[in-house]
Structure formats: C-alpha cells, structure tokens
C-alpha cells in the first residue's frame, strides 16, 4: 500500500505541534488532536501522523491504528465537495446502494476515491440519525433526504 506523501512546510509542522500543545500533549486526547489536524490539513497522511507521534511521544503505529479504525479519519485528500451516502439500516433498505451506484457512475470513481480534478469524493457513512428521511446523502454539511437515483444528477448540478 502506498499513501500520498505530503510535503509538510515548517509552518504546517508548527501548526500541528501547536494543535498537540493546545491539548497539553496529552496522549488521551489523541482523537481530538486528530480531528483538529484533519480540519487543518484536510486529511491525515503519514507525515502528519509522524509529527503528532513525535510531539505526543507515542509510536506512530498507535496513531495509524486509530486513523484506520475510525472511518471519519481519512488518509487520502478528499474532494472539494465530499459526498457521504448513508448506508445505515434504514437508508440501506430504502435503496441507498442504488443511489451510491448512480454517484459512482456519474463521477466515474469508487467509494473512498476522489475525482482526478479534485472536485468530488464519495464515501459511505453509518446512520446519521435522519432515518425518517432515508435514504440520506450529505454533501459537505448539507443534507439531502429521500434521494432517488434520478435525483443524483440534480444534486451534482448544485456543485460545479
């Protein structure tokens, strides 16, 4: 497996360190530190994880274990518009997979991938608690409910 190598600027390294320090370099705050770091970098490539490991004095493998465990953390850059299709039980039953297939078809990418122009990425997520609106799609922070495959092209039109 190879990962995108980010060339971290000295400023980025300083910022990551200051994120760690804002949590008192506390190993117990790792998940919060990763959230903030992902907000800052957009994703968590190996170099970012290594800076955090050194600052917190924990093995980088520990961080990698946490990052791969939680689907919220990503190691590849996401698109400018990140599309999450809920595949929780209710959405699944109501046809989320058909919606997902439509996104895949129109964008020409698979789950977890990003379009070559860097504009769109798609992923599945587990229940977001909007089961009454199933199936649900999130683009960035915006939520679309009762989505059918036919709606997908219209949703994408909003993000150009």
């Amino acid at each position: 497996m190879t990962f995108v190598q980010a060339k971290l600027s000295p400023t980025a390294v300083r910022e990551l360190k200051s994120i760690c320090q804002s949590f008192g370099n506390d190993k117990g705050e790792l998940i919060n530190i990763l959230h903030k770091s992902q907000e800052f970098c957009g994703y968590l490539p190996p170099d970012v994880q290594e800076v955090i490991a050194e600052e917190l004095d924990i093995p980088v493998s520990t961080i990698y274990g946490v990052v791969t465990f939680y689907s919220l953390f990503v190691m590849e850059p996401r698109g400018k518009y990140h599309i999450s299709i809920c595949t929780g039980t209710a959405c699944f039953v109501k046809g989320a997979m058909d919606v997902m297939d439509e996104f895949k078809l129109l964008l020409g990418i698979d789950m977890g991938e990003t379009t070559p122009d860097g504009n769109y990425s798609i992923d599945s997520l587990r229940c977001i608690g909007a089961c009454g609106l199933a199936p649900v799609v999130m683009v960035g922070d915006k939520i679309y409910g009762r989505v059918t495959p036919d709606d997908v092209i219209g949703i994408l039109d909003n993000y150009k």
Partner: peptide, 26 residues
C-alpha cells in the same frame, strides 16, 4: 512490542473482517 519493548512497531489496523496486525502505513 509496545509495552515490554516500548518500540511499538506493530499495531492492529482497520476493523471487522479487515482488521489485522501490521506496521504503521504497512
């Protein structure tokens, strides 16, 4: 590796059926 040696080269990654013990970034 982590507790006795303090080296921490190995880690469990991913979840469910995908989980396995490997090194950081494989």
């Amino acid at each position: 590796c982590r507790e006795v040696q303090g080296v921490g080269v190995l880690t469990a990654v991913n979840r469910g059926f995908e989980s396995v013990v490997v090194t950081a970034f494989d």
